[in-house]
Amino acid sequence: MSEETLNLKLRIWRQDGPSSKGGFAEYPANNIPTDASFLEMLDVVNEQLIEQGEVPVEFPHDCREGICGTCGVMINGRAHGQEKATATCQLHMRKFTDGDTIEIEPWRAAAFPVVKDLVVDRSALDRVIEVGGFISAPTGSAPDANEMLIPKDVAESSMDAAACIGCGACVAACPNSAGQLFTSAKIWHLNAMPQGQAERYKRTEEMVETMEQYFGSCTNHGECSEACPKEISLDFIAYMNRDYVKSKVKNRRLAGQ
């Protein structure tokens, strides 16, 4: 807690619509309390813009607790800004210095078309989930939950991957706009557990191939994991690569599980 305030210069990407040409616009952000979050800082700027009769900046946000995955912008060349393991909404202004210039740009990838200003369309991630990012367990068909023993370490590891919030920072940070971290996290979340075995190879195959319809390919830079607000590990990508080759090689009729 502190009563300090900052005066900043913002360069924010403005773009009217998907087909419009965008560009940076400069706005001052004055008297921003250091306890404010980054998005609260944008709120203040928007209030000022409305007061001046200018159309406010559209930016993605919702829960502001770092869990819904709605928010996410490039801040000074880094997805979600410079703080490790932090979504944009959880980035606080105390991490900036008075007089800083902050460049704010939307996620960029061919698969993430800009909707307006800082908001992009991330529906490609849903397309990857809908082909295999699930366990087919129609309601009512489940056995007693404790009939399935899952070692604690396995459940923990699965949870590490399931923590993904689907913000798309991994794609945004990747020099190739690859969707590997997102996809592999979902594959590991489900493949790690006994419930996920029946559909395992089909899941891996379908999800990888759909991912490649939208996203680039992994060249193992590791930017994704560094940008990830949930610190999803690159190990899941390695696992996915291995499992994908297995899914191609194994004859599932003979696999037996």
Partner: peptide, 22 residues
């Protein structure tokens, strides 16, 4: 009680004991 069964079957990674039980 059915909800827990349903969610576990869907792959919700509930916390577990070392023995693998919920």
């Amino acid at each position: 009680v059915d909800i827990i069964d349903q969610c576990a079957a869907q792959g919700v990674p509930f916390a577990r004991e070392y023995g693998g039980l919920l």
